[in-house]
Design a protein around this nucleic acid. Structure first.
Lengths: 193, 193
DNA sequence: CATTTCACTTGACATGTATCAACTAATTAG
DNA sequence: CTAATTAGTTGATACATGTCAAGTGAAATG
């Protein structure tokens, strides 16, 4: 279970075997069942989560009760409520397992200690943040530039691994459209070919 | 001109006066006139830009020639094409001065050297990236959860300093709507009160 | 200052997407 | 395996936003 974590880190920065062993020790392995909540909005988000296995989503709930998906995270991805994790504010996101999942949890203190202990770790997290910024910008352009149909076709083409696993209602929410509209889009697309 | 930079850094991490002086030396001051392009999509983005004074926007141009604003940056903000600056890829964003502006430029090498020279700098940039992620997520929720009118009212309320200075066509682009729609929204809003 | 250019507005109409209700298919729980 | 619940689809209709064309107002340029 820790292997996928070390592999992910080593794709970005170098770690000696000794460092890798130290690194592992900071993470708490934990299993979640499908539908289980990993984080409830309103609580403090205590962990940065690495997905060793499975699929999660983070989402907010608006006043009218509608859900709005911010992120899907599958094997190899990180997920958290950044504001809450870093600043100790109340979480605004919920995080839910969409499949049975194996996670590796890192606390705030753990992260700080790791950064001080292993030279390349701060760099790793900075690079991770930068990648995340680029991904978020790409997502903004997706809905800014394209119609719902074009946006849907793009994500299915560019990230089929995630979006073929996610329920349609959550994909619709991710795109900012209703399930009905997504259903009609899919019908039109399949009718055309 | 460098003062605003040092102030911005010191809001997040500690710097001795000596470190501050070293820090400054890595930055190249440069002025841009209104309408001048700081970066052209297709070029390599050589700099991370700190805005000492003025207002800029970054934007992409789609195949049909439409512009799509990603970011506005006023005094105290950073702006760049992250993918191009960090990885040396061709820039996908244009950056244009919307007002006469004074910028402080940091090269990639400069950034690396700074990080190695001054202890807190890597931390500063990591925190900066984290803030940026939260801001981008907030922006995604803005268009995901709200109608064009609600989104417009929110940004005008929450960031009046930027959006009162930006031309309406660019605000429309930022929101992912046409200038005509924004014009009608503004008419309705002002008619109601 | 005059002229040109560009930003913004307005109207008529087309299109995309939301809403609500009903239905069918798939999944979950007993 | 069956019943109950949830996810996804479909139809009718309303509303939000886009498009195109024309106009007005403001700003840049010589």
């Amino acid at each position: 279970m820790h292997n996928s974590l070390i592999n992910a880190i080593r794709q970005r920065v170098n770690l000696t075997d000794e460092e890798a062993a130290t690194f592992e020790r900071f993470f708490i392995p934990r299993r979640y069942r499908k539908r289980q909540y990993v984080l409830n909005a309103g609580d403090k988000c205590q962990y940065l989560l690495f997905v060793a296995n499975g699929l999660l989503r983070s989402f907010t709930v608006s006043d009218d009760g509608d859900e709005h998906v911010m992120q899907f995270a599958m094997e190899g991805a990180w997920i958290t409520d950044m504001g809450s994790f870093l600043s100790g504010d109340d979480a605004i996101y919920n995080i839910e397992a969409l499949e049975d999942s194996e996670l590796l949890l890192l606390t705030r203190d753990g992260m700080e200690e790791l950064i001080e202990t292993i030279a390349n770790v701060e760099r790793y997290f900075r690079v991770l943040m930068q990648q995340s910024i680029m991904a978020l910008q790409k997502r903004i352009r997706l809905t800014q530039m394209y119609s719902a149909e074009e946006a849907y076709l793009q994500i299915m083409e560019l990230q089929p691994d995630v979006f073929n696993r996610a329920p349609l209602q959550h994909i619709a929410s991710y795109l900012g459209i209703t399930p009905e509209t997504l259903s009609r889009i899919r019908k039109q697309v399949s009718a055309r070919r």
